[in-house]
């Protein structure tokens, strides 16, 4: 399993940080587009009319909490604590699912209020940005559930902590992207 590497760092972890760097430019482009097009829609609904701050504040809190569960899951796996690795992995995935539920509810509400992806520039940029983020959360949930299954199969011992750490990096990155989206899309209107 262990290999000599020139830096002493694990190759998968290094690759994953490079991937996260690359994702910065993906979300950077999406967020830039949202900001560039802000206020340019020729018809409503506008962000002020439609964004639900209390609801999104709660879902933001949920996602932040899931990050806490994630670090605790990693710590549990690393010290070989089977029960708590499962509890925290499940919690993380569960909280992620709740976040997705909030997003599904939010999207449905918006559509009812007349905002679809084709309605105006706000709709196009909003759904593309938050939808891409939501897709990342969904992939993360599936990833975490896979790890949970591996744990129940008894194949997630402390020697596999790196697998959890990398999943965690992904999860936290998706979280920090949301921190930015919550501010620039929801709070700065």
């Amino acid at each position: 399993m262990t290999h000599y590497t020139a830096t002493g760092l694990d190759s998968r972890k290094l690759a994953f940080w490079a991937f996260i760097g690359s994702e910065c430019l993906l979300f950077g482009s999406l967020i830039s587009t949202y900001l560039v097009y802000k206020g340019r829609s020729v018809r409503g609904p506008t962000p002020q009319e439609i964004l639900n701050i209390p609801l999104t504040s709660v879902s933001t809190f949920v996602l932040l909490t899931s990050s806490l569960a994630m670090v605790l899951a990693l710590a549990a796996v690393a010290r070989g604590d089977k029960l708590w690795s499962r509890v925290w992995l499940f919690s993380t995935a569960f909280l992620g699912s709740i976040f997705l539920g909030f997003q599904a509810y939010e999207f449905t509400e918006f559509v009812h209020n007349g905002l679809t992806i084709t309605t105006n520039l706000f709709g196009s940029t909003f759904y593309t940005l938050t939808g891409t983020h939501g897709a990342h959360v969904a992939v993360g949930v599936i990833w975490l559930l896979t790890l949970l299954v591996r744990s129940f199969q008894g194949k997630l011992g402390p020697d596999k902590a790196l697998n959890v750490e990398i999943a965690g990096l992904y999860w936290h990155f998706v979280d920090v992207v949301w921190i930015v989206i919550f501010t620039v899309v929801y709070l700065i209107q």
Binding site: S22, E23, L25, S29, L30, I117, S124, T125, T128
Partner: peptide, 25 residues
């Protein structure tokens, strides 16, 4: 490559959405 390709991916996704789903990018 890893920094520039995400940007064109986003631009292409917008164009694809415009063509396939009628978005207005």
């Amino acid at each position: 490559v890893i920094t520039a390709f995400p940007v064109i991916t986003v631009a292409l996704v917008f164009l694809m959405f415009d063509r396939f789903f009628g978005t207005t990018f």
